[in-house]
Amino acid sequence: MAEPYGESPLAARAEALADASVPATLTLSEVAFTTQVTLRVDPKSPAAERIGTALGVMLPNQAGQVARTERLLVAWLGPDEWLLVAPEGETEQLESTLTDALGDEHGAVVDVSAHRTILQVSGPKAPELLAKGCALDLHRRAFGPDSCAQTLLARTGVLLVGRDAEPPSYWVFVRASFARYLADWLCDAAAEYREP
């Protein structure tokens, strides 16, 4: 019997991303095969409180907020929608935790792990690079760590998450079908940071 095999959307671009990176200035890489689950629930319901208790972090209740634990990131997507991101292999456990906490209340828990991949953009020039294709103000006072926004980057719909302040670090969630295009765009936009 053949062994199951999976390849990340950017496996073919790993070398190009590494080559486009500039030590101490800019790093481009893929964060592949994460667990990603969307949650829909009324934020004022008892279920939302039970879910927060079960996860060890309350669901963010303001637009653009991110909550984190050591192994989990919860990004606000809408008034009653969140994206939960955990390490690879934790999908069943996360879905079970959410479903149990949701109980009989109205809501939805959906595995979307195969929908998107993550491009990590970090380093002192990361905000400048992203600003070339994104209209958001990425200054750390406006969009710092634990911030998120659904926006366009190089005409591609993405979820942008601020990870760290120093050096600046971002996760760019992009649909698998657009991942190679966006990786190529980032590599091209990063060319000016490489020494001639």
Rank of each mutant, 00 (worst) to 15 (best):
F173C: 15
S169E: 07
A131R: 15
Q150S: 15
P167G: 10
A2K: 15
R140K: 14
A86S: 02
T53W: 04
A183S: 05
V158L: 10
T35A: 00
A32E: 03
P43S: 05
G107P: 04
D80L: 10
K132E: 10
Y181A: 11
D42I: 11
A179Q: 13
L160G: 13
S147K: 02
R175H: 10
R175S: 08
G133M: 12
P60A: 06
R140F: 12
L59Y: 08
E95D: 13
A24D: 11
L102T: 00
E90Y: 01
A18P: 02
T38G: 04
A2R: 03
V158I: 09
D184T: 02
R163K: 10
P9W: 04
G89F: 12
A32M: 01
V57C: 01
A12S: 10
C187G: 04
L102W: 02
A135E: 07
D100H: 14
G107C: 05
V121K: 07
G123L: 01
R175A: 15
G56P: 12
P4A: 11
P168Y: 14
L153R: 03
E95Y: 04
R180T: 08
I118T: 04
R175V: 15
V174S: 13
L84H: 05
L73A: 14
V112I: 09
T97E: 10
E192M: 09
R175W: 10
P60L: 06
A135W: 08
V121W: 13
E88F: 11
A24G: 07
W171A: 12
S29H: 00
E95C: 12
D111T: 06
D111L: 13
V109G: 03
T38S: 09
S169K: 05
L77D: 11
I51S: 12
Y5E: 15
L153V: 01
L28P: 00
R40N: 00
Y5W: 05
R140H: 15
A165E: 06
A101C: 12
S113A: 14
V37K: 09
A20N: 03
R13D: 09
V31N: 06
S177R: 12
E7R: 15
A20P: 01
T69D: 06
A191D: 01
A126G: 07
L130I: 15
V121I: 13
E95S: 07
A142V: 05
A142C: 05
L182E: 07
R50D: 00
G144Q: 15
E30P: 00
D137Q: 13
K125R: 00
H115K: 09
L186M: 05
V41R: 05
G162D: 10
S8F: 07
F33G: 04
D137C: 04
E95N: 14
R180F: 00
P167T: 07
A47K: 06
V161P: 11
G133F: 04
Q150D: 08
V66S: 09
A165P: 03
A12W: 04
P9V: 09
E15R: 14
V85M: 11
N61D: 13
T25A: 06
T117A: 03
Y181L: 14
